[in-house]
Amino acid sequence: MLNYKQKKNQPLKGNRFLISVTVLGSSGPIRFVVNEEDLVGAVIQTVLKSYAREGRFPALGSNLNDFLLYCPISETEALSPWDNIGSVGVRNFMLCRKPQTETAIDVEKSPSVSRKATGSWKTWFNNALTLKISSH
């Protein structure tokens, strides 16, 4: 597991700003202040800790390597854990679990069973909106 903690005795550099991170499947965003020099990996770690501390569902776990942070304007590309959060230029993000990969062994064992591919958060969001509109 990668370690993204910054040392507490280091002076803060750069600007601080409020970000909002929506966790896919959760009831609402998590908001907190970050330094523009903070790494994306550190932001993911902070979101996971805050999410668990607040007792939100569904439970996510604490392994930051299982998650990707997306920027709504970059559509399909996840942010690199080594990028600075301030380099993106936005304040709203989406945290999603990494897609599960199917191994060739699993395909050989059950060739007649096909798994539905996991879509992006935008596909999930559009489907949720469609269901909500059709139920009213």
Rank of each mutant, 00 (worst) to 15 (best):
L2C: 11
N3K: 09
N3Q: 10
Y4P: 04
K5G: 08
K8L: 13
N9T: 15
N9C: 09
N9G: 09
N9A: 10
Q10E: 15
Q10S: 13
L12E: 14
L12H: 10
K13G: 09
G14Y: 02
G14W: 03
N15W: 07
R16H: 05
R16P: 01
F17S: 02
F17L: 04
F17K: 07
L18G: 04
L18E: 12
S20I: 01
V21Y: 03
V21T: 02
V23F: 00
V23Q: 01
G28K: 13
P29A: 06
P29K: 03
P29Y: 03
R31T: 12
R31P: 00
F32C: 01
F32Q: 03
V34G: 01
V34C: 01
E36D: 14
E37K: 06
D38P: 02
D38F: 07
D38K: 03
L39P: 00
V40Q: 01
G41Q: 02
A42E: 12
V43T: 09
V43N: 01
V43R: 05
V43A: 06
I44L: 05
I44R: 08
I44G: 00
I44W: 01
I44A: 00
T46P: 00
T46V: 04
V47K: 02
L48N: 00
Y51E: 04
Y51M: 00
Y51T: 00
A52F: 04
R53P: 02
R53Y: 12
R53D: 15
E54C: 02
G55A: 03
R56K: 14
F57K: 15
F57C: 13
F57N: 15
L60D: 02
L60V: 08
G61K: 03
G61C: 04
G61D: 04
G61T: 05
N63P: 04
L64A: 15
N65Y: 08
N65G: 11
D66S: 13
D66L: 10
D66P: 02
D66C: 10
L69R: 02
L69G: 04
Y70Q: 08
C71N: 13
C71K: 03
T76K: 11
E77K: 15
E77R: 15
L79W: 07
S80Q: 07
S80P: 05
P81G: 03
P81F: 13
N84L: 10
S87N: 13
S87A: 12
V88R: 10
G89K: 08
V90K: 09
V90W: 07
F93A: 05
F93T: 06
M94D: 03
C96L: 09
K98A: 08
P99G: 07
Q100N: 06
T101G: 11
T101D: 12
E102G: 06
T103Y: 05
I105D: 11
D106M: 12
V107Y: 06
E108D: 14
K109Y: 13
V113Q: 12
K116P: 04
A117I: 09
G119I: 04
S120Y: 07
W121Q: 00
K122C: 07
T123R: 11
T123N: 09
T123K: 13
W124E: 14
W124M: 09
F125C: 07
F125P: 00
F125L: 13
N126G: 05
A128R: 12
L129E: 06
T130C: 11
L131Q: 08
L131Y: 06
K132Q: 14
S134W: 09
S134I: 08
H136E: 15
